[in-house]
């Protein structure tokens, strides 16, 4: 099982940032304070939903069939996700 990338602070629930990156081949470490991209700020199932959407060429009907859900259920999930991404982007812009 691959470990899940934590996106929220387990202590205060605030969004986590990246402070260190490492090159596996030469062990170089890069330190800093980087914000995570919007995609990585989403929950694992939301990321999975976006991937499925992409792999189905954006066909919600196909996704509904695959996920054994009705079309409006999938469309609502997508609308909620769009709303969440817009909110995250707004938060990012406000923070800048």
């Amino acid at each position: 099982m691959s470990p899940k990338l934590p996106i929220q602070c387990p202590s205060c629930d605030d969004a986590l940032k990246v402070s260190q990156l490492r090159c596996d081949s030469c062990s170089t470490l890069v330190s800093g304070n980087y914000s995570m991209p919007v995609f990585l700020k989403l929950a694992a199932e939301e990321q999975d939903f976006i991937l499925k959407f992409l792999l189905n060429s954006g066909s919600l009907k196909e996704m509904a069939k695959q996920m054994n859900m009705s079309y409006p259920t999938i469309r609502n999930r997508l609308d909620d996700l769009i709303e969440k991404i817009n909110r995250l982007k707004d938060d990012e812009n406000t923070a800048l």
């Binding site: 509904a64 069939k65 054994n68 859900m69 009705s70 079309y71 409006p72 259920t73």
Partner: peptide, 11 residues
Amino acid sequence: PFKKYSERQLL
């Protein structure tokens, strides 16, 4: 049933 079943099945 609206959550799971397609419009054709429901119809």
